[in-house]
Design a protein around this nucleic acid. Sequence first.
DNA 1: GTTTAAACCTGGAGGC
DNA 2: TGCCTCCAGGTTTAAA
Length: 283
Amino acid sequence: MPELPEVETVRRGLTPAMEGAVISRAQVNRPDLRWPFPERMADRLTGAKVLQLRRRSKYILADLSTEETLLIHLGMSGRMLVSGDPLGQFVHDHPAAEKHDHVVFDMENGARVTFNDPRRFGAMDLLDTSTAEQHPLLVQIGPEPLGNLFTESHLVERLKPRNTAIKSALLDQKIVAGLGNIYVCEALFRAGIHPGRRTRNIAAARIATLVPIIREVLRDAIEAGGSSLKDFRQADGELGYFQHSFDVYGREGEPCRSADCDATIQRVVQSGRSSFYCPSCQR
DNA sequence: GTTTAAACCTGGAGGC
DNA sequence: TGCCTCCAGGTTTAAA
């Protein structure tokens, strides 16, 4: 489920429990998620101190005192929940273990971090911190949409030569990192661009408008704590609220929210994914 | 090289 | 209640 705003929300939720804390016990309940876990993962994590929790695209990166970095991806249905009492302010018990609790970290500060992922599209790996950015999963990823390298000229240069639907192009993580089905639909609506429009047929100036719009959509969503559809929870188990702000995603047949527009939101399938759009506002 | 479709896996929703 | 089908926030891999 999680796109960049949800992953960032999880990272922020995990930070008080994990950053600066030592993993006193790592419990690994199955041999793999999407791929096999790295060898001796539990042993390599036990006793390690988490120096820093970072995010790159939809990956959470935990730099450890062992000079290794734990890479975490939530896939479609992954959650990370913090229980226990990391700050010593409250007393509450850990919840009972649930089905699909695949990895559990007990921190020395009393917090417990549980990775639960029914569909198992998630992943974990351990990399050398010094070369973490060169990991095959990370090396090809495009610029962070909230960072300085995501510029109008970058987006125009990467989209203009291609002959693919703008919707599919924006989902390509090599062009820009972190976008997924929801926020691409929402950004295209705000930009007034039809999701099926071929990138080479869009004027450069219109492509350029997507840069501030993508930033705005993502910032709004992070501000709201992400979007909770089927699976997403923040690290403290709370729901995100951005789904209440969707203009098009999941609103097939409902009225367009633009002023002076009486069209209804449509759904089409593009390369196997649903796209939602307003046929009147998006051209 | 580019673009599209299938695959991975489970669970929830809706129809009958 | 039970069975069936469809759908889902991601990403890789193979095929066209």
